[in-house]
């Protein structure tokens, strides 16, 4: 469970988030949606303590995020960032193994290796686990980064646009994994652009606009024609196809 209280964040002096108070429930998949520049990624980075809030509090299981030592936080919370440029020349397995660093501090045990292999298999990376990242496509790199986050095995998982560069089969695979992690009792928070995907997989939706929370609630309530049309300032229709809601913007 992550809770924010009157959170505001400024980037180089400019306010980006203002007065964000949300409760992101444990064991649920929460989708962060909203137009470009709404502050979704900024909120995610702040929850992951990569950005300092200007004011307000973040509570992780009732505990102030600032009070958690870095080592301990890395065992509780992992984050997939959008700009994940990797400096050194690593193989997929090297990168995923770094996800175990909070647990074993670089000395991989047999259990760590097993966990790494499991993350690699879950993201369908087994075929090129020993290839260098710079020889892979954007989608394959993205999956490797997601595998690294999974290998970290934290209670809170933050994913910033995990479906970037992914083909449709792998996008579905990643969303199913996110769903499984939430069902296993983890707090999963995902920034999503595809609202149909959000409607299909998320339990809880936080809609953001211009640095504020525009709507928050169960996905059936937030993914509706009225809320979405207001959020994106354009006509949005929500149709039902095969028992699932599909968001159309034609």
């Amino acid at each position: 469970m992550i809770e924010t209280r009157a959170l505001s964040v400024a980037l180089s002096g400019k306010p980006v988030l203002a007065d964000i108070s949300v409760a992101l429930p444990k064991g649920r998949l929460t989708a962060l949606v909203g137009p470009n520049g709404a502050g979704k990624s900024t909120l995610l980075m702040t929850l992951g303590r990569l950005l300092e809030p200007a004011s307000g509090d973040i509570l992780i299981d009732g505990r102030d995020l600032r009070a958690v030592p870095p080592r301990e936080l890395a065992l509780q919370l992992s984050i997939l960032r959008q700009e994940g440029a990797i400096g050194p020349r690593l193989t997929v397995r090297d990168l995923v193994s770094f996800g175990r660093y909070p647990h074993s501090h670089g000395r991989l045990t047999a259990a760590d290796r097993l966990e790494v292999q499991r993350a690699i298999d879950r993201l369908d990376l087994a075929g090129f686990a020993d290839r260098y990242l710079d020889t892979l496509s954007g989608g394959q790199k993205q999956r490797a980064q997601i595998a690294m986050v999974l290998a970290q095995q934290t209670d809170v998982i933050l994913l910033d646009e995990p479906l970037n560069n992914l083909d449709l089969a792998h996008a579905r695979r990643v969303m199913r994994i996110a769903r499984e992690e939430a069902d296993a009792g983890r707090t999963v928070i995902v920034v999503l652009h595809d609202l149909t995907v959000a409607a299909a997989y998320a339990d809880h939706v936080v809609a953001m606009k211009a640095g504020r929370v525009a709507a928050e609630g169960p996905s059936e309530e937030v993914i509706s024609e009225e809320v979405l049309s207001r959020l994106f300032e354009t006509d949005v229709s929500v149709a039902e196809v095969g028992g699932r809601r599909v968001v159309l913007t034609l």
Partner: peptide
């Protein structure tokens, strides 16, 4: 040396892995 390996990944990545 192991911590330096992590820091080579960059500031944000090493912070998410628990390096101050």
């Amino acid at each position: 040396h192991r911590q330096l390996d992590v820091m080579a990944l960059g500031r944000a990545a090493s912070m998410t892995l628990g390096v101050d």
